[in-house]
Each structure stands twice: as C-alpha cells, then as structure tokens.
Design a protein around this nucleic acid. Structure first.
Length: 839
RNA sequence: GCGGGUGUGGCGGAAUGGUAGACGCGCCAGCCUUAGGAGCUGGUAGGGUUAUCCCUGUGGAGGUUCAAGUCCUCUCGCCCGCACCA
C-alpha cells in the first residue's frame, strides 16, 4: 500500500464532509411532538476570535468531537454547533493600533478560525454558525436587555465601581481578580459612576439551590460558584443613633454576640457618614479619612494584615439589646457593598474588630466563654475567641449554648421590631456597561423629560455606528458620533440622547447556545419549541477559567428566560466537563513568555489526526498536562503503524472475510488458537474503549487500549495469514481498530474504512462486543501467602473454589512459604487469586 | 486563614480494596538496510543475586483488612479558587 500521507487524505475527507454536509442536523418539523430522548446536544465553549486557535482550543474541540462522533455512532441525533464570541476588546485594541475596522479584523480572524476548525475535521453543523457581533445576533441581545429592563432586572444606579485604567472601562466584580483586571492585569481603581446593572442578586438563592438540578458538574466548579455567591445566614439588627432620629441597620452572622458589641462602624462610602459629622468638630478629619479611603485601590484596601485604621465620628449608637451607647467610627475595613455597609463590632469574638479595639483602646467584652467560666478576661486576651461556647455577660441569655442564644436573640429582636433573621450574599449585581466601542449598544435613550427610555422593540437593532477614532477617552468612542447620539425620545418625541455605552461581551455569550437551535429566526431570538427540543445542553465542555464568569451569567440568563416563559428549563448545561490546561516548558502557554506551541505547524507536519490523538493521549482530560515535543512523534508513529497493519491485512485478505462474518462466533476447526485469542482481545478492546469514551471520558486509556490491540495484532499476524480463521480474525480486528479510532482520528479512519470496502463510517453503528469472545477459557490465578504473591497458575475459567485452593496448596513455589506453618485460613477470589494465611 | 484538587519509574501517565508501573516518550540491545532521525523485535522502578530467586517500593507517620496506591486518622509539599464578606 501507499505511504501514510495525512495531508492528502485529510483534505480528501474534509472536502467530502463539506460537499455532503455530513454533520448537518435539521430541526424537527414538530419539535413539541418529536421525541427528544435520542438527541444529544454536545457543545464546546465558543472561541473568542482574537487571532488563531491555540492548543487549548484544539484540546477542547477534539474532546467535543470525540463525544459528538461517538454519540452519533451510538444512535443519537447529535447537535454540534459552533460560533464566535466576536465582540470584545482585543479586536478593538488591534483596531486602535492598526487603524483597521474592528469588524474587518474580526472577519479575518473568524475566517482563520473557521478554516482551522475545518482542518481539524471537527464534525460541526456549519449551517448554524453564528457570530455575536452580527446585527442579526446582537439585535436579540438588545431585545433581552429591553425585556430585562421591563422586568426591573436591568437597572441603572450610581455606585462605587471598578475602573480599569488600561482598558479604559468599568468591570464587573467577576472580572476583577485580586484587585486586578481579569483581562490585562492592570490595578483597578475605585470610581463612583452611574452604570447599568443586571440584578443577578435577585437570583442568588436559585443559582445556589438549582445546583442540585445539575447532573454532573466538576466539584470544584460547584464549590467556586457556591463561594462566589457566598450565602451567609444571620440577622439584621437596627441600631439608633443617640440624639438623632436615625436608624442604621447592620447585618451580622453572630447575633449571639450582640451583648459584646462595644463599638459601631460605618463604611467610608456609607451615605450617613456626612449626616453624622456635618457641622461638628469631627467633620474635617472624618471627611479627610473618607476621601483617602475612596482613592485607595481596592487591592491595597483589602490587603490582609494591614493595620486597622478609622476615625471617630463623635456620635454614638444605641445597642438595642441592652441600651448601651457605643461609639461610631468610620473604617475602611467595612465594605459598602456587603451587608448594609455598617457593622456592630464585637472585638472579643471577631479578630478584625479585636485589632481595631486594641488600636483604639476600646473595651473587649467576652460574651461567649470557651470553658463556661472565664468571663471578664477581655483585657488579657491575645486574640478574639471565635469558637462556640456558653453565653456570659448577656443578661437572661447567660448560660445558654451560644448557637441557641443566637436563635433566641434573633427571635426576641423580631418580637421587639428591632431586627429579624436575614440572609446576606457576597454576590453583587452584574455591571454590564462598558465604555468601549466593540460591543452591542445598550438600547436606551435619555430624555430630559422622561428619563431613561428603552428603545422600542420595533426599532431594534440599534446598530453600532461608525466612528473616526476607537481610542477610549473615559467614555465610549461612540459618544463622538453626534448623528448617532442625537435622536428623539420614543416616549414624548422631544430631543433625546442615546446611551453610548456598550454591553459586556459576557452578555452576548450568556444565550448563544439558545440561538444555535434556531439561528436564522428573524422574528424572535429562537422558537421556544425548537429550543426546548434541543436544550438543555447534554454535554458542555470548556476551560475552568469560566467556572464563575460565563457559567454563572449563562445560568442566570436561563433563569430569567424561564421566568419570562421563553424556555421551559431552569439550567442550560446538564453536564459540564472542564478540561485541564496544556503547559509548555513548565508554564501556561503565552505569547509574552514565548512558549507557545502552534497547532497549525503540527497539523502541517503530522496531520490533524495525529494532533487530535496526541492532545487526548497526553493525560486525563481534566488535568493540566505538559506538552512534550517528542510525544506527538509517538502519536504519529502509532498512526503509521495502524496504516501499515491495516494495509497489509487489506492486501492479504479478501473483503468477503470481513466484519459481518466475524460477528458470528468462530466456527469450525480453529487452525490456530491465536485466531481465537485475537478475536477475544479485539472484543475486549471494544468493551474498554466504549466504556472509556462513553462513561468516563478517559480518552487517554481508550487510546492505549487500541494501541495494545494493534501491538497484539502485529505480534501474531504473520502466523494467521495462512489460515482461513486467522484471516477472518485479522480482517475483523482491522475493521474494529479503524472503527474505534474514528472518534479520535476521523480522517485516517474514514480512508481505511473505505479501503476495507465500506462506506460512510461516521454513520456506521458503533461496534458491539460479543460476550462469546469475552469469556476466557483459562486465566492466571495468583497464589498469595500472607498477602504476598508467590506463584501464578494457569487455571480453567470454570474451576471451582475447592479446585483453586487445591491447586494453590499444590504449588511448589507457594509451598516453600507454607511449609511447617499452620494454615489459618484461605481467601478465595475466583477469577483472581487465592491467599493462604499462615502462622 | 477558609474551600477544592493533587502527590506513583528519567518523563506523561495506568490500576471495580485483589499480580503496582498498562500505554506512550526517552534510553539500551538485536534484526533489517548501501544508509537511516525509517521499520520490526526484545529489555528498561530501586537494591541484592543472576539457571533463578529474594528484599524494598505509590510524599511522610499511624490505623482498618486475609489483602491498601485505593478506605480511615494525623501530617508535609505543590496547584487552583475565595479572602478585612461582618
């Protein structure tokens, strides 16, 4: 046979798949009445077209394709679409540098990626391709904004926000990592701006509770989401400012420590700070403190271990449980965004409050005692006591276990109308406005008379206008386009000005999986029945870096759409698989580090099949792995071995001696026992590969199982060609190898399958293992003495327990260790081992 | 600090509580070849003996069990997430 030439056969099959539109899946004519039980929606996170695909994408799409092709061949109608997350800063920044239009750059990049995906041979239904920067798509993103606005989920408020000076835009909390911009790493600055938000906090409880509806998500992703939502149970307690008619509520998770509150704190941003100090001698120092705190970068302010600072306001708060007056301070360790922006401080039982109290000489009063006796040791404490104990110094609650007291105090507060049980979340509302160009314009018009007025649905899309200069100047470049900005108010017809901010690109990607189901619908974002047929996504695959951002937003979006009755499911992604990253030279691949492995070069050199095979063979798909330059050589060698093996079998056997015949048990005289052995190995391999792909996603072990089979075939093939049974077994083995390899390496498999005399491998049913061949006649019995292996014996599969014991006892090798000893017992595991326990 | 994950040859990694190191890379040897950075075959955890066999070994220390990489307790290292969240 000719030499293995991946470039030639890959081009050939990609052309055939393209011409035949092989992976196209039409929507059912009557989706509501069509049985969706055999559909499988396989989805990989859509790529951001910043340039070309990198190795992480190759892994992602290779995995998705293995699952898609495997399921297709197992009788599922596989829905496997693709698109581009095309709005975003990289294209815009490149545009600023080169002067090209971001749309043009995006068009070029998506074209490149489309070509790369074709060259990988991924089984995508390209008729459903979408790009989030197309007006036909973002029209519906804007539509959802309007619907969210109608429901009060989209709203505008002035708030302290995160400003990235490098990206020149505000960021959502999720996009700030340790005080730095998630995208560019610049230190974010606090600013107070009026911005658009999505009220995701209203869904905090459901985002948490509905985790139970997910079938299979990685534990760490679930944990990260739980942590991010950060639900805390406690109480809201109202403190009154002495001498003023002002009530300030605080949130606490420790209502049991209320009697230990010896001071009170406000966040610098708290709206009442000014009221409390206005016109008093404390006015100036407090104002100075507040100003300094507002300017401090969030990262500095949050730095743990930094000494506590604060400023006394001259005011006192009255503790509702005992009527005590406690001093009110302003301190920057109190966060305006969490709880109510004010806290009661209990230094004896909170380390932060303790540090503040020590610095400012405030009383530390123990109200929960560890040993039940040691009350009043506050002045001697070296640190706060944060464990559970028994109540002291707390009036009628003394002597109670503190957790019980917490509940009792909360209840009492409720009765007295001084507080109530409350739940607080760490999750904040999603800030979606961006002061940048390359995004979907927020469809709102401002009118002096009517305020913020939504653009009427009929006027969508609000097209992104042309601008002369993309460089951000603290506000969106769109603001410079007077023609765009100046319009009429849809409500009163008077002069209006358009909103010039665009939406966070995470809004675009929060619903793209729905658009795939009905991508050309121009009357609605999607048809409910059609979406209901394909959704939810049965298997979602992507990087763990989206564990919070994208996955939380998409879950939120789906829940809002559920409430709007646009979808009939609560969770979009039933199963999630997060792949590990590929490292190179000990680090994450990145252009700045210069350690990037370019997929195109490897496709060129070895072919897509080899690259796909290697990225999945490298290790368990969920773990981070290190790219090894020589590793891919091994994958290429293996495919060469397969090519030559199958080629030789094609040449030396007849097509008539093929799979169908081999599916029946080997009948008649078995010329060579090895023919049966090969049939057994082949069927065992079917079992292993099927389980490894279908149930465990252990692609690396599935591949190694095929490698074993190939190795086995090589060892015994020469002895088998001479007999009829041998040729039959070899032909069947060759066909099986090709079929099992198909999800990983579809091109070489399709080619060899054709040469074996068949058609359309991607539609051919997945091979089934035949139990007749799985049963071994003999096996190796391990003989242990006191748990140590001493001998291995060939035993008949049917041997009884007694026979196994007898054989084990008769073993000379094992006998050396049992001689002269007393046999206490014998453990028999049929099919595996006998363990003789002696003393 | 809290939460999650992970630790096995020179390397990537296999092992429903039942033969530790499958498979691949690398390395060594043989065959084939005018040649080989091709192909085929064999070997390759460490230590001691080599006809063979023995001992030790899955980060460390205990424990459960006839039997532990696997289960339990403690502990150490690394990775990820959150972190002044009241």
């Amino acid at each position: 046979m000719d030499k293995y030439d991946p470039a030639k056969i890959e081009a050939k099959w990609q052309q055939i798949w393209k011409e035949q539109d092989s992976f196209r899946v039409p929507n059912p004519a009557e989706p509501g009445k069509t049985d969706p039980s055999r559909k499988s929606y396989v989805l990989e996170m859509l790529p951001y077209p910043s340039g070309t695909l990198h190795m992480g994408h190759v892994k992602n799409y290779s995995m998705g394709d293995v699952i898609a092709r495997f399921r297709a061949r197992n009788g599922f109608t596989v829905f496997h679409p693709m698109g581009y997350d095309a709005f975003g800063l990289p294209a815009e920044n490149a545009a600023i540098k080169t002067g090209a239009h971001p749309a043009e750059l995006t068009r070029i990049n998506t074209g490149n990626i489309n070509q790369q995906l074709h060259r990988l041979g991924v089984s995508i239904d390209w008729s459903r391709e979408i790009s989030t920067c197309d007006a036909e798509y973002y029209k519906w993103t804007q539509y959802f904004f309007l619907k969210f606005f109608e429901r009060g989920i989209a709203y505008r408020k002035e708030a302290p926000v995160n400003w990235c000076p490098s990206c020149a835009t505000v960021l959502a909390n999720e996009q700030v990592i340790q005080g730095e911009c998630e995208r560019c790493g610049a230190t974010v600055e606090p600013r107070s701006l009026t911005q658009w938000f999505f009220r995701i906090t209203g869904y905090a409880e459901r985002l948490l509770a509905d985790i139970n509806l997910l079938d299979s998500w990685p534990e760490r992703v679930i944990t990260m989401q739980r942590n991010w939502i950060g639900r805390s149970e406690g109480a809201e307690v109202v403190f009154r400012v002495a001498g003023l008619d002002i009530d300030i509520p605080v949130f606490t998770t420790r209502p049991d420590t209320l009697f230990g509150a010896t001071f009170f704190l406000l966040a610098p941003e708290h709206e009442l700070v000014e009221t409390l100090v206005d016109g008093t001698e404390y006015e100036n120092p407090v104002r100075d403190y507040v100003t300094a705190a507002r300017l401090k970068p969030a990262a500095d302010r949050a730095a743990a271990g930094r000494g506590k600072t604060g400023e006394f306001t001259g005011r006192f708060a009255i503790n509702p449980v005992n009527g005590e007056s406690i001093p009110i301070y302003v301190s920057d360790y109190v966060l305006m965004e969490y709880g109510t922006g004010a806290i009661m401080a209990v230094p004896a039982h909170d380390q932060r409050d303790f540090e503040f109290a020590r610095k400012f000489g405030i009383e530390v009063r123990v109200v929960v005692s560890g040993d039940g006796a040691g009350a009043g040791d506050g002045p001697a404490m070296a640190a706060a006591f944060t464990e559970d104990g028994v109540m002291v110094n707390s009036g009628r609650f003394d002597g109670m276990p503190n957790r019980d007291a917490g509940r009792a105090i909360t209840e009492w507060l409720g009765v007295e109308h001084l507080g109530r049980a409350a739940v607080s979340y760490r999750l904040r509302d999603w800030l979606i406005s961006r002061q940048r160009y390359w995004g979907a314009p927020i469809p709102v018009i401002y009118c002096d008379r009517c305020g913020a007025v939504p653009v009427p649905e009929a006027d969508l899309p609000v097209l992104l206008p042309e601008v002369g200069d993309y460089a951000p100047k603290g506000k969106s470049p769109i603001a410079a386009n007077e023609e765009f900005v100046n319009t009429t108010c849809p409500s009163c017809g008077g002069p209006g000005r358009r909103e010039t901010d665009t939406m966070d690109t995470f809004v675009d990607s929060s619903w793209y999986f729905l658009r795939y189901t009905d991508p050309h619908n121009d009357l609605a974002p999607f048809d409910k029945a059609v979406a209901g047929y394909w959704m939810p996504v049965d298997q979602y695959i992507g990087g763990v870096e989206h564990a919070i951002l994208h996955l939380m937003y998409a879950r939120f979006f789906t829940k809002v759409l559920f409430d709007m009755k646009l979808v009939n499911f609560r969770e979009p992604f039933r199963n999630l698989f997060t792949q590990g990253m590929i490292y190179y030279k000990g680090a994450k691949m990145s252009k700045s580090k210069g350690n990037v492995v370019n997929p195109d070069e490897h496709v060129e050199r070895y072919g897509a099949d080899t690259l796909r095979l290697y990225v999945l063979f490298m290790g368990p798909p969920e773990l981070d792995v290190e790219w090894q330059d020589q590793g891919i050589e091994g994958a290429f060698r293996f495919l060469g071995r397969v090519w030559r093996l199958v080629g030789e079998i094609i040449e030396k056997t007849e097509a008539g001696e093929s799979g169908a015949a081999a599916m029946a048990p080997v009948a008649g005289p078995v010329v060579s026992g090895e023919a049966v052995g090969l049939m057994r190995k082949t069927h065992q391999t079917i079992t292993r590969v099927t389980a490894d792909i279908g149930e465990r996603f252990h692609f690396n072990t599935a591949i190694s199982a095929v490698m074993e089979l190939v190795n086995q075939a090589y060892l015994i093939k020469d002895g088998l060609f001479s007999s009829e049974d041998g040729r039959l077994a070899l032909r069947f083995t060759a066909e099986t190898i090709v079929q099992l390899l198909d999800p990983f390496c579809p091109h070489i498999s399709a080619e060899l399958w054709e040469r074996l005399g068949h058609e359309e491998l991607w539609q051919h049913p997945w091979p089934q293992a035949d139990a007749v061949y799985l049963e071994e006649e003999t096996y190796e019995l391990v003989v242990q003495v006191n748990g140590k292996v001493r001998d291995r014996l060939q035993m008949a599969a049917a041997a009884s327990k007694d026979e196994l014991v007898a054989a084990a006892r008769a073993s000379g090798k094992a006998g050396r260790y049992t001689e002269g000893k007393q046999v206490i017992k014998e453990i028999v595991v049929p099919g595996r081992l006998v363990n003789i326990v002696v003393k």
